[in-house]
Amino acid sequence: MKIANISKILLMGIGNTVTVFAVTLFFSIPLGLLLSFMSMSKIKVIKAPVRVFVFIMRGTPLMLQLFFVCFGLPFLPYVGQYLVMDRFVAACVTFALNYAAYFCEIFRGGLLSVDAGQYEAAKVLGLTKWHVRTKIVIPQMIKIVLPAVSNESITLVKDTALITTIGVTETLHYAKSLVNSTASVLPYGVAAAFYLGMTFVLTKLFAYLERKYAF
């Protein structure tokens, strides 16, 4: 089988790969930012649940979380019947929550690294808390967290392969079927090239962002 033919079949799966990737980033970054502010709150009822959430999401396998959301939730008493999700949606929800936990910690680290003098300067100038956050703190945090966010994004590209375990067809799923049906290792090589292509684009994108945030 030619590489072109293999590629054509793998391309059928790449839509799901890219969609899970994009949806996850789209939801997990804002959610992670919100969680990071909450986890730095002085109010315990705001902070504590976030810490528990982060502990669970970071402390258990992503695959377990996928199984839990996709196959486990419907068995919950009373509410289970309302928690039956399309598998693809379940995958997106799980990934977004999981990555939000990691982003929460990355952003928290970034927020803590913003110099205390920045808050003081903003305060004596009379800026409101909202302006301090949006105009002073977050832009500086972005610069600090970019390398870590880049790293997470690349990990996410590869983690999307996990959704094949709950029966959502993506790139790796088609590669595996092809290897089985053609008795050739080539489809794995082509799939690897696909992932490398995606991570290459991301690497370039983040390199650009890091240049843009070089202050």
Binding site: G117, Q118, E120, I136, Q140, Y213, F215
Partner: peptide, 10 residues
């Protein structure tokens, strides 16, 4: 005015 300026670097 602060010892370490505290200008907004961005």
């Amino acid at each position: 005015v602060f010892q370490h300026f505290n200008l907004f670097p961005h």
